[in-house]
């Protein structure tokens, strides 16, 4: 079983990312769950969404705070207290939306052992494709491309297909382009 937490701000599409990941897992012939934080959330405030992916039926339910991959949709959340509730398992992967191609410093995310960090400038990709809603760059679909590159938990092909299914039409195509760009541009820095 592979467990993933998406950390972002309310309105950035973390929950949508978790749900598209389920669609991608289904396309890859895997089992999956996706769900939001259980409770109320506010636009702009830090939020989390969760996914589980496995090749066997998933029996367990509910939120978790220790994950195999943590996808952060806004790099400024890394040094906020909010993120300290989450922990990366040994050999876990942090996937970060950031303008910097350097290892992140002073982060409050907890880690259990060895970890790797992958970065991508998803905000720039979103702006390039004019993926902006109410003034906010939409980075969730790009971060799914980055997650696929960093972990291989779902294939690039499945993520692209899932994005197209979820949004359909032109919006689906634009998002899929952003996902593909992010996949290509994601690099390991730690």
């Amino acid at each position: 079983m592979y467990e993933i937490v998406f950390v972002g701000r309310g309105g950035q599409g973390a929950v949508t990312a978790a749900n598209i990941l389920v669609e991608a897992a289904l396309i890859d012939g895997l089992q999956a769950q996706g769900f939001p934080f259980f409770g109320a959330e506010r636009r702009g405030a830090p939020v989390a969404a969760f996914s589980r992916v496995d090749d066997k039926p998933i029996l367990r339910h509910g939120m978790f705070n220790t994950a195999d991959a943590i996808v952060v949709l806004d790099n400024k959340l890394l040094n906020q207290d909010y993120i300290s509730q989450f922990k990366l398992r040994d050999k876990g992967v942090l996937v970060l939306n950031t303008p910097y191609n350097t290892p992140p410093r002073d982060f409050k995310l907890r880690v259990e052992g060895e970890y790797s960090v992958y970065v991508v400038n998803a905000t720039q990709i979103a702006l390039k494709h004019r993926l902006v809603i109410a003034g906010w760059p939409v980075v969730n679909t790009s971060m799914l491309g980055a997650l696929s590159k960093a972990t291989g938990i779902v294939s690039k092909k499945a993520v692209l297909e899932a994005v197209r299914r979820y949004f359909s039409g032109r919006i689906g195509e634009v998002n899929a382009k952003a996902t593909e760009d992010a996949y290509e541009l994601t690099v390991r820095v730690v």
């Binding site: 389920v22 089992q31 769950q33 996706g34 939001p36 259980f38 409770g39 998933i58 339910h61």
Partner: peptide, 10 residues
């Protein structure tokens, strides 16, 4: 609620 209600699965 939430545990199934808001959780996606195939």
């Amino acid at each position: 609620g939430f545990i199934l209600g808001h959780t996606t699965m195939p």
